[in-house]
């Protein structure tokens, strides 16, 4: 199981690096699927088969499909890839890379500082998840229901094709111009 974890970790990290460096949105999305699959393998190696399945179905399935639909609807083809290439100058990477490297360094130090214990190898009983979900976390489940509802309504409302409508501040600005 250890090998499974290390291999899948390497795959996930490599795929993620590819995601954030691609020019074509569709290529990035394909690498993102690989990254999600790697993470699902990590879950499996941690003894969590249920969330591994959900990771594949929901992340690699549903969310990626949403992205692909949007990319298709916006018709982001070769022009946007050229655009991305122009934007991806090496100098734009310097500052963020330094900052994130510092953050990573701090995180690593903090994580290794607190000592460590070997991971137990047994699977968490699947029955326990729904029991605690509808037991102590029932309020959170309700709130998640609200959140999803709001997400659906919000997406339906915002995504509707209507005539160009500007906020009143922007409208004034436009008139002034």
């Amino acid at each position: 199981m250890n090998y499974l974890f290390y291999i899948s970790s390497i795959v996930a990290i490599a795929a993620t690096v590819m995601v954030i460096t691609r020019h074509q949105p569709v290529h990035a999305l394909l690498y993102l699927v690989v990254s999600f699959l790697g993470v699902a393998m990590i879950f499996l190696s941690l003894g969590a088969p249920f969330v591994a399945t959900l990771e594949i179905i929901l992340y690699a399935g549903a969310i990626i499909v949403l992205f692909i639909f949007v990319v298709m609807m916006l018709n982001l083809g070769r022009e946007s890839a050229i655009q991305e290439r122009q934007w991806m100058q090496p100098k734009t990477w310097i500052g963020p890379s330094i900052l994130t490297a510092i953050l990573l360094g701090e995180l690593l130090v903090l994580l290794t500082m607190g000592g460590s214990a070997p991971m137990p190898q047994q699977t968490v009983d699947l029955k326990k998840i729904p029991l605690s979900l509808y037991g102590e976390y029932v309020i959170a489940v309700e709130l998640t229901g609200f959140l999803l509802m709001a997400g659906i309504v919000g997406a339906a409302h915002i995504g509707r094709h209507k005539k160009k409508y500007l906020h009143r501040f922007l409208k004034q600005e436009e008139e002034a111009v």
């Binding site: 500052g95 900052l99 953050l103 701090e106 995180l107 903090l110």
Partner: peptide
Amino acid sequence: ISVLIGIIFILALQF
């Protein structure tokens, strides 16, 4: 970036 610098600062405080 501002948020990031803030996080870095707060984590640095831990040391």
